[in-house]
Design a protein around this nucleic acid. Sequence first.
DNA 1: CGTTTTTGCCTTTTT
DNA 2: GGCAAAAACG
Length: 730
Amino acid sequence: MILPEQDISVAEAEPNPMLSLLNDEQKQAVLATQGPLLVLAGAGTGKTRVLTTRIAHILLTKLAWPGEILAVTFTNKAAREMADRVSSLTGASQSLWMGTFHSIGAKIIRRHAEKLGLTSSFTILDEDDQLRLIKAILAEKNIDDKSLPPKLFLAIIQSWKDQGLTPAKVNNPGDTQAASGHAVSVYKAYQDRLRQLNATDFGDLILHMLTLFTEHQDVLQEYAKRFKYILVDEYQDTNVSQYLWLRLLASYHKNICCVGDDDQSIYSWRGAEVGNILRFERDYPDAKVVRLECNYRSTPHILAAASALIANNRGRLGKTLWTPVTEGDKIHLKSVWDEGEEARYVGEEVEQLQRKGTDLKQMAILVRAGFQTRAFEERFLTLGVPYRVIGGLRFYERAEIRDAVAYLRVIASPSDDLAFERIINTPKRGIGQATMQQLHTTARAINNSLYHATVHLLQTGALKGKLGQALDKFIQGCERWRSQIGVLPVSEITELVLEESGYRHMWQQEKSPEAAGRLENLKELARAIGEFENIGAFLEHVSLVTEAAGNNDSNDMVSLMTLHAAKGLEFDVIFLPGWEEGVFPHQRALDESGTKGLEEERRLAYVGITRARKRLFISHAANRRIYNQWQSSIPSRFIAEIPQEHVDKISGGLYNAPKPTQRAWQDEVASIMSASSKPAASEAKFSKGTRIFHQKFGYGRIQSVSGDHLEIEFEKAGHKKVLADFVEKA
DNA sequence: CGTTTTTGCCTTTTT
DNA sequence: GGCAAAAACG
């Protein structure tokens, strides 16, 4: 199936205008259509342009039809962007297989659902549903969910799915003993329940495809032959499942082009394997590798800082980024007293830049963890600076939206027990534990869903009085609403449901300040549904797309987001606050993953720095409040890893005196680090057997110490677990 | 069954 | 210190 070489030279002979926009490396990456290709694309080197031009090139030179090209991304945004740019280059992109791993997975699984024990109308569960399911399983199996919380099982199951392990394939001694040996049987039960519910979770969208391809050669053949060209974005983020799936798909034509940057691998906690990209040349022996190293985004100082920082990581494929730009500010570094001062400082800089003519939408504040946005939000509110938090509260995760969606799920598929349970008593219909128990028992007895159990009980007259009336009204409503499917437009059905179920009324009754916003959201939901063909299409969208509502790019606002959310974005001005040990690098990353964790944190720092086009502000506070306790903190080691010649220290902080050499610079950071490091409070002060006094519990003796947590036998109050800060030596 | 009180956990990052 | 889930109470 290898196509003749001439095809490529034809393209070169008739220079294509879009190719003239590319540099030599980018052209190589576009024109090397045949065989495996790895494009190592450093930050800001134009990888999206390469990907889209490559697709356009394949289409325009007739190497393949749109339906024979598969392009996978990780985010819907990336997919949409790619589709837009391809269609502007070629005029059309509809029939391309372009989307996220998960949306492509859903599409393929729906086509072959019966081979996996599902029907094509299967639902996709969110985390909430998953946890409720696991909780029910734990209860059934009499597993104590205090010592072994559902979240633990979910994490284990997810990581197995990321690794391509079905329950039957979990065999490692370490794995089989996970969660006191219960994890495998819970996983099995969980998968059984999913199948009964005709449901999948996110991991299944990949894992089922893998199963489908390995157990049904004919299906694999169909797709492997169909996709003449495969393109993968952000290859460094693929997990084992995705990796295996891609290898199967590429086994026939072997035209797979993976684009990625090992230095931007920041999702290992979600199962991503940097090894996939590091191993590419071994997996595909005749692979070509193209490095994109010319950065068109950032100024030299910013780029040099990022390069020097990331050079501290081991096991990189290695790239040398350079930029044709010659001028630009150094990185601004500021030391502040506490987070309040940090927010004031950032606020001032933002206002000053705005006065000088920089749009607010060209500025972003990137934090390590979501909660850090709060200090800045408060500051911006008092200053009256418009801002938006990206990725904070997502539209479809709000309670009222999830409730409304649950109604639609029950109407679309009455056997959706999880949705049924969510809304059967919302608004209040007087259904409590006892009634739910009865419904569950009946459902099991008639081997049917909760919905049908309810119908059954109503018919047999087992539900009487107020309860029976309420349930009857509910069922009648559902039947009536369902009968409107295909008759009324979906947005009108939604309105009808919200009105007649009493759900909207419930919020209208509530006088809390959020209620008005919730009603607004419900309106917005009904409007959004109108854009879909049918309820099914909408429900799929809800499960796969997590977008902030009303993301108007036209509004001039400062953006606040996590470093993870910032990947793939760029701004003229970037603020990176909170560069302190423990915050960034995050303590938990260090504790749980050691050097590997530290290197991923460093890659995160690299991602953060390289988001900036013109100006970069890094800051750290000497004191920070954590769990409502003041803690002194020391500057992040990453600050010391940035060569001094690229840094401008802003006066008023700890870094006042300029130091001439890199060595002295590092010494200075080190001295600050040791000067402000506090003695480990509890360990030094308290040990086993120490007699102490507690304001509330009185005198006692320490039984054990672990970090700040003390176990104390009090003379009057008995055995208690207490934080070290609440006790003093007696 | 619904309300109030208490606890416990949080603050890593998410398709 | 704040929020959500669980427990206790009415």
